[in-house]
Design a binder for these strands. Structure first.
Length: 874
RNA sequence: GCCCCUGUGGCGGAAUUGGUAGACGCGACCGACUCAAAAUCGGUUUCCGCAAGGAGUGCUGGUUCGAUUCCGGCCAGGGGCACCA
């Protein structure tokens, strides 16, 4: 006779390893492309192989796995793949430190993290795994780049980079700290390089308007993308320069504005430091040249530009106001004007723009109000105007503005546009309406080794020549060193020398590699058929599996990754590699994992394992284990190495098991919000695992022979739970699912404690236990398999269908309605569920208790909301 | 500066989307079992009050028979973007 497994605690260590092996041996989660069931593609953002997985990964992949397992149970053919976003800078940094190859470090990390992910028991199709640094992957990426090139989706132009003048290398924004290179400490300079771009800005309008169709995306993300694309309607306007003040060859300055209505308030103009006019003026004014040089020493990141003090320099050039005869306006160079946006030049109206106001105040320029509140007269508005006051840009009425006086802002914009469209000089209209976008082309050139080589050859005679398809992939050389800063591809002795595919003469390979965002802009498509060695994608597989039905990842990718992927999918469709526009039908962005911070009495950060928490009357307190002294419990923050408030998933899975870790990650906090990792919380989850094991043990021991069943309270609870959990899983509200499952387990406990149970009661409990196991199976899959086996379920629970709820069991014959008097609850009354409002009102009026509370006050009105509430107004 | 989100017991949160505020969990307290502890089981747990009762969802107005939910103003915390013209 075999030992009763329920006499001891559930042994997660033994069970989890065993079920993981069963799933793997049976290839349970490998997806068959010809599976006839309706498809469902679940994808979590694939990880960068940084070393070890962290709790954020656990949360992300636990959520995705619940969706995947639930969809399997609902009868879908589920695609749930995993891979590695394996190119990137950290590998080069590690190579520099450890004097090894980036690939060695990357593949070692992948091996570690794969083992860690497998210990979570995820229902992943590992047969489809790939790493983006594998030539078998980036070969196809190079092929698509060349197809994009042919289709006119690629361009080459100059743009600015952060240049470290000591290390002679290009720096990423994060490598620039306080304007200095992170290793050399040298002041960073801006340098112009010719680089490769994908022409995403040609699709600004399309990418913006298609956001409306993404109805299963969070509103927040759509809004962020819309703001990033930044469509604006404005006017480009040509100002004539005062000839005596302008550099040779310059007679006009074209600006872009979204507030042409404020033109009468213009008191200065400003151009970007790299505007041609600024450069020309700099050649005749050494001080201006020095100022331009100073602007160039700002980093290229927006953050660097943002935090710099607003500065300007008067070029001495004067522009003629296009509407006020005789008014000459000074032209400044300003460090906050961007050459990339609009025309790189503006006019400033200090009274109605905060930044212009700051500038005018600093340089003592005129400030003239031109929009006033509707309620004031012109005279009152002029009298009330205060130079120091914050400018108002509220919608109002124009004044001090000639022919615009009395018009609304919108009408004035229209009038100005009409006026300048019909005026002209030099054979062109003075002003033109223009829709402008903030979105810029996507620069993909990186002067780095660990990325996908751009497959182009530069020939002195033929120019830039694509590498022929049959020569792909252009593979990274293995023999590289990182002891010197700079791009190893550039200084490699032989790699860059190649013959021109056109004329056959010696030529040079492109040594730039691609931005890693390119790698992640199509991996979801590659997963649909990663076995195709010849083509990036297989049309039938794309048609079958895309779009991704549910994409899950961090909010930090709300803009760039998702926007680039949306563009890339369109580009793939244009070049015949895909057949759709939007890659992600459903998107969910999960919150961070946060943890308390601890500091020793001496003020040093302490990690959670160095601290013991004691709970007592005075609340919780922390003790430093090593010293026995009190430690300070600090604020709850995102887990980070610097604050030491990290918890290692391996430790948690080792001491509590994967199911407990997953269960806790999903419980309590709504998934889109941050979750606080706490030891108490994990222990609570662990207790629930053991409770389930005990309940199943009782059900098995007592009720083995039972089957069938008649309605019973616990049956009703179980069927209600099926509906509630299913509904919440559909909406990814995992915390509520868990609450419903707790409820059901409580109902089962109560039913088991009832004295004098009959056969039917026993059968009902058994059925409820089976249902409970099925309901938590997506979240705690190992425990569910173990319980399923003990309860005599057939096959694997991973293959079992979701239980069907019997709607007739869920209906109640009588419900209790709350009774309010003047909106305050005063009592309850039991009424038949199907009672009409009139019946309910009659029952209420006949109820002695309610009438007693009323004390004979006349009833003015009785409001009956069926199945909800009754409100008596007296 | 602009945009977005959030604010409910000691704590995480729930509230059928305008209808019984505090489900479920954590913590705490009381009790049972135990020589004892752990584990487990039962009970209590928004606040004030002995009670009847009253107050209560950041603050403050409003709409409504009825507001955690909708609208206006404010406060606090978090996030994103940015000198975007």
């Amino acid at each position: 006779m075999r030992a009763n497994p329920f006499q001891s605690r559930y042994n997660f260590r033994e069970a989890e390893a065993r079920w993981q092996k069963t799933w793997e041996d049976g290839k349970v989660f490998e997806t068959k492309t010809d599976d006839p069931r309706p498809k469902y593609y679940v994808l979590e953002m694939f990880p960068y192989p940084s070393g070890r997985i962290h709790m954020g990964h656990v949360r992300n992949y636990a959520m995705g796995d619940v969706v995947a397992r639930y969809r399997r149970a609902k009868g879908h053919a589920v695609l749930h793949p995993m891979g590695w976003d394996a190119f990137g800078m950290p590998a080069e940094n590690a190579a520099m430190e450890k004097k090894s190859h980036p690939g060695t470090w990357t593949y070692a990390n992948i091996a570690t993290m794969r083992t860690q992910l497998k210990s979570m028991g995820l229902s992943l199709d590992w047969a489809r795994e790939f790493a983006t640094c594998d030539p078998k992957y980036y070969k196809h990426q190079q092929r698509m780049f060349l197809d994009f090139l042919k289709a006119g989706l690629v361009t080459r132009k100059t743009s600015k980079v952060n240049w470290d003048p000591v290390d002679h290398t290009v720096l990423a924004n994060e490598q620039v700290i306080d304007g200095r290179g992170w290793r050399s400490g040298a002041l960073v300079e801006q340098r112009e390089l010719t680089q490769w771009f994908l022409k995403i800005s040609d699709y600004s309008e399309e990418l913006l308007s298609a956001l409306d169709g993404l109805d299963r995306w969070p509103e927040k993300v759509r809004l962020m993308q819309a703001n990033w694309i930044g469509r604006s309607e404005g006017l480009s306007l040509r100002w004539q320069l005062v000839a005596a003040t302008a550099p040779a060859g310059f007679s006009e300055l074209e600006i872009y504005t979204t507030r042409p209505d404020t033109l009468f308030g213009a008191s200065f103009m400003a151009v970007a430091a790299d505007h041609p006019l600024a450069k020309a003026a700099g050649e005749r004014d050494p001080k201006l040249a020095a100022f331009l040089e100073e602007c160039r020493r700002m980093g290229t990141s927006q953050a660097a530009v943002d935090t710099a003090e607003k500065k300007g320099y008067d070029t001495g050039i004067r522009a003629m106001h296009p509407l006020v005869p005789g008014l000459e306006v000074p032209v400044y160079v300003a460090n906050f004007i961007l050459m990339d946006y609009g025309t790189g030049a503006i006019f400033g109206c200090p009274a109605h723009d905060q930044r212009d106001h700051d500038f005018a105040t600093a340089y003592n320029l005129p400030i003239k109000p031109v929009v006033r509140p509707v309620a004031l007269s012109d005279a009152e508005a002029n009298a009330a105007f205060d130079r120091k006051n914050s400018p108002t840009t509220d919608d109002g009425v124009l004044f001090n503005s000639g022919f615009l006086d009395g018009l609304t802002v919108a009408a004035a914009k229209e009038a100005i546009a009409k006026h300048f469209e019909s005026e002209s000089f030099g054979g062109r209209p003075v002003g033109q309406r223009k829709v402008n976008f903030r979105l810029r082309d996507w620069g993909i050139s990186r002067q780095r080794y660990w990325g996908c080589p751009i497959p182009v050859i530069h020939c002195d005679d033929c120019g830039t020549v694509p590498v022929p398809n049959q020569d792909l992939p252009v593979v990274l050389p293995e023999d590289v060193t990182f002891d010197v800063p700079g791009n190893p591809l550039d200084r490699h002795p032989t790699w860059k020398h190649a013959n021109c595919p056109c004329c056959g003469k010696p030529a040079r390979r492109e040594t730039d590699t691609m931005d890693t965002f390119v790698d992640s802009s199509w991996y979801f498509a590659r997963f649909t058929d990663p076995f195709n060695a010849d083509e990036p994608t297989t049309p039938a597989a794309i048609a079958k599996w895309l779009p991704v039905d549910q994409y899950i990842g961090g909010i930090e990718h709300a803009i760039l990754h998702l926007l680039y992927s949306r563009f890339f999918t369109r580009a793939m469709t244009i070049t015949g590699h895909a057949s759709l526009k939007e890659p992600f039908a459903g998107l969910f962005t999960q919150g961070m994992v946060v943890h308390e911070t601890y500091k020793s009495a001496a003020g040093a950060w302490l990690s959670p394992v160095e601290v013991r928490i004691e709970a007592g009357d005075g609340g919780r307190r922390a003790l430093e284990i090593a010293t026995g002294k009190d430690a300070v419990i600090g604020s709850i923050e995102k887990m980070s190495k610097s604050r030491k408030n990290v918890v290692d998933p391996d430790d948690i899975i080792e001491s509590y098991g994967a199911d407990t870790a997953r269960w806790f990650m999903l419980s309590d906090s709504p998934p889109e919000r941050d979750v606080i990792w706490s030891e108490e919380g994990v222990q609570g989850a662990s207790r629930f695992v053991q409770k389930v094991w005990r309940l199943v043990g009782e059900a098995v021991d007592l009720l083995k022979a039972q089957s069938g069943g008649t309605p019973h309270a616990v049956t009703k609870a179980a069927h209600k739970a099926i509906l509630a959990v299913g509904d919440d899983l559909e909406r990814l509200r995992f915390n509520r699912c868990i609450a419903h499952i707790h409820d059901l387990s409580n109902s089962i406990s109560s039913a088991l404690a009832e004295p004098g149970r009959d056969t039917a009661g026993n059968a009902a409990i058994r059925e409820a236990v089976v249902i409970m196991v099925q309901l938590f199976a997506p979240m705690m899959p190992h425990l569910a398999e173990e319980c399923w086996k003990e309860l005599g379920g057939s096959g694997l629970i991973a293959d079992a269908l979701w239980p069907a709820a019997d709607a007739s069991l869920v209906v109640e014959a009588v419900i209790s309605l709350p009774i309010q008097i003047n909106g305050k609850k005063r009592g309850d009354i039991d009424v038949p569920t199907d009672a009409s409002p009139a019946d309910v009102e009659a029952l209420v009026r006949a109820d002695a208790k309610i009438m007693a509370i009323l004390e004979g006050k006349p009833i003015r009105k009785v409001i009956v909301i069926p199945k909800r509430i009754v409100n008596i107004v007296v």
